[in-house]
Design a protein around this nucleic acid. Sequence first.
RNA 1: UCCGGAAGAUGUUCUUAC
Length: 417
Amino acid sequence: IYNVNRILNGLCKGRHISVAFDLFCLVLKKGPKPSVITYSILVRCFCDENRLDDAIGIFEMMLKNGKNPDLILYSILIDGFCKEGRVEEGSQILDKALKCGIKPDAVVFSSLMGGYVRIGNVEQAFKLFYKMLKEGMSPNVVIYSTLMNGLSQRGCILEACGIFSQMLKQGHEPNVLTYSSLIDGFCNSGDLREAFNVYEHMMISGCAPDVVVISLLVKGLSNVGRLFDALRFLLKTAVEPNITVYNALINGWFRLGELSNALKTCRLLAVHNLDPDAATFTLLIKGMEKKGRFLEASMLFFSMIKKGFMPDVIAYCVLIDGLCIHGNVLAGMKLYGMMHENHIHPDIFVYNVLINGLCKKGLMKEVPKLLGKLLRQGLKPDIVTYNTMIGGFCSLKKISKAIGLYQNLLREGLKPT
RNA sequence: UCCGGAAGAUGUUCUUAC
C-alpha cells in the first residue's frame, strides 16, 4: 500500500484526478487494503478541486470501512473547508475531532486562522491565536505570518509590526513570506520608504527576496504613479520578473492614463519571453474602456479567445461593465449568456455590474429577473447590490422603495457602507 | 530511507461631501 499511496499522490499532484480515482477503486476491489493515508490523499485531492462533497464522501467511506481518521486527515478536511470560505464548518469538523480525542496542532490552527483572515474576520483569527497560547501551544512562523497578513491587508500595519516583534521575541526566524506581509502592509498604507526598509533588512538578514516580494514593491510604486522608480528598481534586482510584475506596471501606466506606455510594456513581454495572462487582457480591456474605446475593448476580448485564452469570470465582468456603462445593457446580457455557454459561472460581481447597468437606465422592472437568477445560483445580494438598487430607485424618486431595500439589507445582516 | 496536512503578489461591481 505504501507504493500505491506514492503513486496515488503523484497522480493527484499532477491533477490526474480521474486516473487517481480509478486506481483507488481498483485498490478497493483487489487490495491491498487502503490505509488512512490512502484515503487522506484522495480527500486532499478532492479538496484541491473544490469538490468538498466528494471529499466528505471519501471520508465517510473510510469510516464505513472501519478506519479511524487521524489528525492529518482532519487537518486536510478542515483546511479544505477553510479555503472555500466555510470556516464555521471547518471548526465543526475540529469539534468532531476533539470528541475523538484528537488534539489539534499548529497546522490545524493555522488553517482555521487563515480561513478567518480570508473572510475578513481577523478578530476571530486572533481568538484562535489566544486559545493556542492558553493551551500552552507555541505559535510558529506560519501562524504569525498568517496574522500579519490579515492585519496588513486590513491596513493595520502597526499591529502587524507588533506581531512581528512578538514573533522575534519568541525566537522565531522570519522567512520571505513573513517579510512579504510586512512589505505589502507598508505599501498599502502608502509608506513605501518603510516597505523598502523592510526589503533591505530582509536581504541583510540573509533572506533572499523572491518574485512575490519584487511584485509587491513594483505594485506599490506603480500604484502611486512612480513608474520610473519601479522600472529602476526592476533593473537593480537580480530576481527575474514574471507576468504579475509586468501586469503591475501595466496597471500603473493605465492609472496614469498613459495608454501608450501601457502598450509599450505589453510589447516588452515578448522580449522577455513572457506570455500575457488573463489579468493582462483584463487590464487592457479596462484601460480601453477608461479611454472610451469600447469597440477596441470588445475586440481585445475576442482576440483573447482567438489566441486560445478562455476569458475568466473577471474578464467577462470587466467587458460587461464597460458595455453597460456605455449604455449597452443588451450587449452585456448577451455576454452574460455567453458565460453560461462557456461554463463560466457568473459571480456576484457580474450580477452587480448588470444590475448597475439596468439601474442607470432606470430599468428597475428588469432587476428582479436578475435577482432571481443569482438566488437560484446560490448567490446572495451583497451590500453593493443593495447600494446599486437603492441608487436606482432614488434617481427615479421612488424613495419608499429605496427605504424598503435599506430595511431589507439590515434584516439580512449586511452593513451599510 | 521524507506515502498524506497550514501562510505571501497582478485584473472586475456600488458608495466615499469643496
